[in-house]
Design a protein around this nucleic acid. Structure first.
Lengths: 213, 213
DNA sequence: GTTTTCATGTTGACAGTGTCAACAACGTGT
DNA sequence: ACACGTTGTTGACACTGTCAACATGAAAAC
């Protein structure tokens, strides 16, 4: 039960092979795309034989699912930290959150694609799905808080959550996959995100702009 | 120069191998996903030797890009036909178009993913990119027409196009990739699309009902 | 009509991959 | 001290993308 965490002396029994595999796979994914992620290359990166990962993952898809899960957890943690830092719960906070989401998606397009466009079956990796669900809860709560703070007024609140998430996800996806498409207008991702949010979150400003003013 | 179109007698010289490859690949993609699309299997489907496709496509990616291109062309043709059938150019026509887009994306999730989430490089397949651009043009024109008809009033018109497309694309993507996600509320794709469009395209119905009135 | 040429299809071969069964090394409880 | 289970290794297999060398047949040149 001792968490020996690879002190370096033991060539056998790596100590933390599962996490090491995920880290190596994430690194390969970031640098060389999905086609660059090979079980054999992953093993090579961490100086382990080619089929060692099979003691920790059922197959290659299992490792990739673990990578996607890691991505979702990183996303929800980042978002939760951001929301914790800023105590205010108005539209400005929601916008900050969505910008953070966009930055996350743009920072590692290959990982983002793995998270949102790899053909995992519906109930194949419940851990991954749960992690994804947790990330969405953070966004949903931000919208609900914004509404309770009175700066968001909509009938179909869950519809707004759905719309916001679809829009931002779609925008990130388009920027990552078709960056030269004319509809993106050669603008940067966050500039376009602001255009989208200006339409989706009209600041109903006339009476009171309390947030940043 | 005779377009002999495979009369069946000639086992050699297929006659239309390039298109046959694309069709077979599309069929395999639809039925078995991307991992089921194999050059060897494609060749097998059309009774041709394994490396025959190399006379028509530089490599496997080339064939896949041709499939994606086919998808984009099908999309823009469907959309253009729809717009031609209905002569009206109001918000209702725009909604019909976006529903058609959603139906297209849901009809073949694997193809949709290939079109919007396969790591083709930016300038790698100009034909495919051009076909994609043409499809977007149809949508853009529908929005412009809707605006000219007076039923759409927005400041940033291109921003609205961007927002609509991001939303619908994102929604389709989420439905395809994470169909059980709670934010989708177990509703069908087109029901959720209506929720999104109710927010994005407030009907400002003939007489009154200013959205935030 | 013969011959040349060239696009198109075939076969053999190779390196690389995911995966598994059989084996080896190590930590651990008895 | 010793058996055992966990973890890592090696050999092997089927399959893949890809290419060079060869085969075929239709059209062009003569």
């Amino acid at each position: 039960m001792s968490g020996k965490a690879q002190v370096g002396g033991d060539p056998y029994h790596h100590g933390d092979l599962a996490n090491a595999c995920v880290r190596a796979a994430l690194s390969l994914l970031h640098d060389h795309g999905l086609s660059g992620v090979t079980l054999r290359e992953v093993a090579r990166c961490i100086n382990v034989s080619r089929s060692a990962p099979y003691r920790h993952f059922a197959d290659k898809r299992g490792l990739l699912a673990a990578c996607a899960r890691h991505g979702f957890e990183q996303l929800s943690q980042t978002a939760a930290r951001l929301l914790a830092d800023y105590r205010t719960r108005d539209v400005a906070a929601l916008r900050r959150l969505l910008h953070e989401y966009a930055r996350f998606g743009a920072a590692d397009p290959h990982l983002y694609r793995l998270m949102f466009a790899s053909d995992f079956e519906v109930d194949e990796y419940p851990d991954m799905t749960a992690a994804a669900e947790r990330a969405f809860y953070v966004l949903q709560n931000a919208v609900i808080s914004g509404q309770q703070a009175g700066t968001l007024a909509v009938e179909d609140r869950d519809g707004l959550v759905l719309t916001l998430w679809s829009s931002v996800h779609g925008l990130v996806s388009l920027h990552n996959e078709l960056p030269t498409c004319s509809v993106l207008d050669t603008k940067a991702l966050e500039a376009n995100l602001d255009r989208v949010l200006d339409i989706l979150l009209p600041t109903t400003v006339p009476s009171a702009v309390q947030a940043t003013a």
